[in-house]
Write a protein that binds this DNA or RNA. Structure first.
Lengths: 227, 227
DNA sequence: ACCTGAACACCGTTCAAGT
DNA sequence: ACCTGAACACCGTTCAAGT
């Protein structure tokens, strides 16, 4: 299939080498034949972005505590993006409207609703988790791409070399700030979010009755509907 | 200055129209003259990415409670990215190693250290906040770019049109999921993170100090609509 | 020694010509 | 009616030729 070949090409040769002509050559067909399957390159890229997200869906699962499910969903999303570094940037600026994206959204929202979040809180949580994961992975990939070898020592050296009086906090924390990628940092950030979410779910910390269904009418005024 | 002209060009004509030739024309110089200031286009883009972040620094300030400072820093970062939508993607895949980035890092880390976070916790918090903000803005810009007009009604219609049995959670929360951009959602996510951070800072404390009330001043007035 | 701009090796996409 | 591939209007970058 065209999309698979395109992903393979982008991954093996790099995003810059992914051209309609090269893809045609890789498939052994006239490059212009691609235009009968996709209106233009843009549309093909949309298909690529959604295809990458297919891997995200499986790990969500439907059992376990909601924190576990949220964690594995976010980790799955990250893994999918990391597995296709040259597609990740594409994903970032595309609507996430494809089939695979929709299924992932369904699984994630179902988990949150089941946990007791109101539709509003669940949607907010979902967007927040998605935003964090996407941003984290992009920073991760960006730094890896720039720094040739191992990231940490390079960054630490860079931070340590700064003027101490001008950058007191940065030089003090050079070692800690040099960690900008990897599983541990990611899960730490994720924990932070989940901690916040848990507090929202059970504000009193006491064994409050599990709130199911929509929460009582929100006091705060709703967003002004556009027009 | 070349960088300012480049940003202006990218913003007024769109990222796709930003070429070395066009920039040369806009500056009234031979396009090839640019190569004496920047080794190649890549290096020029690095300069653009860092320049955009200059606007992030001012809002951080050095007074107020750490939550306020973190909030205004994140909001400032977001505002800077939103103000330059066609540069935002660039920022995403670049090392954030320029001067402006460094100063923003210093201000952010100083605030967190002062609040009582350990170097390790402060660095983790900083990376998490940065990742969330970047990812959120990219999703925001991506969706705005795709959907021509007002985002919310379009997305709501799309979610509502789905098969209820196949997408029960999504169709149930169509209204809430349709909100994928804007200040309110951003600050909600930010609150989640800050809540988690606060729990980390004061794990045992029963009562949160003072204000737990959400949303202080909304981000500076209204922001310029992208494009 | 400098700068210019022609030229090179590419793009995505169109469309006339050939079947 | 279809498909091909030449051609168009671009790129970023190089480098020889002019000053």
């Amino acid at each position: 299939m065209i999309v698979e070949a395109a992903i393979g090409l982008a991954e093996s040769q790099g995003a810059a080498a992914f051209t309609m002509r090269a893809l045609g050559a890789a498939l052994g067909v006239d490059p212009m034949a691609l235009y009968r399957h996709f209106k233009n390159k843009e549309e093909l890229l949309d298909a690529l972005a959604d295809a990458v997200l297919a891997d995200t869906i499986a790990p969500i699962g439907s059992d376990g505590d909601w924190r576990q499910r949220a964690r594995s969903a976010a980790a799955g999303y990250r893994t999918a993006l990391l597995a296709h570094p040259s597609i990740a940037t594409l994903v970032a600026r595309r609507p996430h409207g494809g089939d695979n994206t929709l299924h992932a959204t369904e699984a994630g929202m179902a988990a949150l609703l089941e946990a007791g979040f109101s539709p509003r809180e669940a949607a907010f949580a979902f967007r927040t988790l998605t935003g964090f994961t996407l941003g984290y992975v992009l920073l991760e990939l960006g730094i890896r791409e720039r720094v040739g070898g191992p990231v940490e020592p390079v960054l630490r050296a860079r931070y340590e070399a700064l003027d101490t009086s001008q950058f007191p906090a940065v030089t003090t924390c050079a070692t800690e700030l040099a960690v900008v990628e990897g599983d541990e940092l990611f899960h730490h950030g994720l924990d932070l979010l989940l901690l916040g979410l848990e507090r929202r779910l059970n504000p009193s910390r006491r064994k409050a009755p599990a709130r199911t269904g929509p929460s009582p009418p929100a006091v705060k005024g709703r967003r002004k509907p556009a027009r």
